[in-house]
Structure formats: C-alpha cells, structure tokens
Amino acid sequence: MPTMRERFIAVTSDLLDSDPNVALILADIGVAQFRETGVVDRHPGRVVNMGIREQLLIGFAAGMAKESFRPIVHSYAPFLIERPWEQIKLDFAHQGVSGILVSIGATYDEADWGRTHQAPEDVPLIATLPDWRIHIPGHPDEVEAQLRAAASDDSNVYIRLSTDTNENAYLTGGPGFSTIKTGSGDAPTVIVVGPMLDVVTRATADLNVTVLYANTIRPFDSETLHSVLQSPEVILVEPYLEGTSTAEVSLALQATPHRILSLGTSRRENRHYGTGAEHFAAHGLDEAGIRSSVTEFLAQRVVV
C-alpha cells in the first residue's frame, strides 16, 4: 500500500496535469518527489519552489490564489502551519482567497528528529480560524478523496498526512463522521480521529461503546454525534494536542447533560527522540494507555 504522502504526490501531479488552475507551491520539501513525476518541468509557472522561505510560501500562494489559481501548499507541519501562522491567518481568508495546505510530519511521525519536528499543535492552531476544513486522514484512499474534493472547491482546507495509517479507509471527501461500531443500551460514544482508529478499536474491542470515526474534524459533525448518543459519556481521542475538539463536543451537546474524556498529547514537552509509538505511549495513547483511561472514566459513570 502506498503511503499517504506517495498518494498525495500522485494525485497532486494528476491534478496539475488535468487542471490548469491548480498550482503547487513548495519550500524545498517534496521537490525531489515532484521532479520524479515530471510536473516541475511540465508546469514551471504553476509549480514553484520557494526554497526555505516558509512565510513567503504562504504569501506567495495567496498571491497566486488572487489570480484565480488553486494553490496546494506543502511542507512539514511545523514549518507549514506554526512558523507562518500569521500569514495563514491574514493572507488567505482575510484577503478573500483560499488554498489547500498539505502537511507531513504529523505529531510524532518524525519523533527522532526532536522537538523542532514534533508538531502536535498544528491542528489546534488552524482550528482557531473560521471556516477552515480540517482533514485528518487515516488511510491513503481518504487522502485522495479529500484532496480531489478540495481541489474542486474554493474552501480553505488543511490536510494532515501521517505515516500512521489504519487498515481500512472510510471514503468521504468532505465532512461527516462514520459509525464504526454501534453499542447497545446506554453505550458511551467514542469519537476517534484519523490514524488513531485501529488502536482505539483494539483498546475498546470488548467494551460496550459506540465508535464514531472522524477523518474530518472541522466542521465538526454535531448531527451524527447527536444521532448516536445513548449515554452522557463521550470519549474523544485525537492524535494531537488533548482537548483540541472538546469545545466542539460541548457546543454540540450544550442542551444535553454529558461528561467528556478528552485524550490526546499532553502539553508537557516530552524531551526524547525515539519512535512515534514511544511518544504516543508516553502520552498514554497506546492501546494499553487508552484502555486504562477509558475504563477509569467509565468506572466513574453517574446517573443523570
């Protein structure tokens, strides 16, 4: 199975060949891979490498968008989202234009490169902005569906690629949660985001829970959450900073008594290298840690 990034490169190259309005703006990262597909040579005016200039990466893309191009902008998450944060805020929606940001290096994908390349804060940052669609794909097929959908509309879209993938894809290019498992009676609801699905499924396999899968976390699918809700307990599992979507759950359930367990990476700096799996375990996001947190939370259930 190709990786999410390999699928992104193939689909983006196809979009560049088939749609003269699509542009690709890079900052060195990915240039070699796109050279291999030939698009760098075939579309020199629309495939532009900024070099290591990430503020310009965003401003330049916004300028292309002002001339009616649909820019796809790609780099590592900390350099695509965190470093040029103000450019994202002001140069796209504020100027009345839009683009597609596609990152690699999700959370601890590049843990052995240290804190500079660990990026659990990108999604909460983007989520502060209005009207951004945020995709957290869990499978390469989902990447393709989301990217093709994004290329065909004029929304601001963030697609967060990861080296972690799930076994199966849930194909939707747009918003909406998928129901993976329906519990019985007063089953709590688990909302699991992107590449966390398989580990959460294993961790809760023998528990009576309803599992919703979200590969699009903004807009937040309040309607589906309401439709499956059987008990006050909601467990949110996100592969980035803990609590990122807690307010969305609270807003969705503001008229419904509820309790929330929000799992994600903690705010403490885990000053280690190693693997992503080791870092996720350190934050209690491995199978054992998730199961422990969920069972402890459910042991405190209250009758409303």
Binding site: Q55, G63, M64
Partner: peptide
C-alpha cells in the same frame, strides 16, 4: 487589492500575484 497593517505581508503576496499574472 489587499488588507494590510501587519507589516511584511504585501511584498510576498505581490510576488505571488506577479507570478500568477505571468503564468
């Protein structure tokens, strides 16, 4: 053409606009 006030945004956008027009 643009909203401005936070310094350092205009020339990067202008560079993209110029490239877009040339393309």
């Amino acid at each position: 053409e643009i909203g401005s006030g936070s310094l350092g945004h205009g020339l990067p956008i202008a560079t993209g606009v110029a490239n877009g027009l040339r393309a």
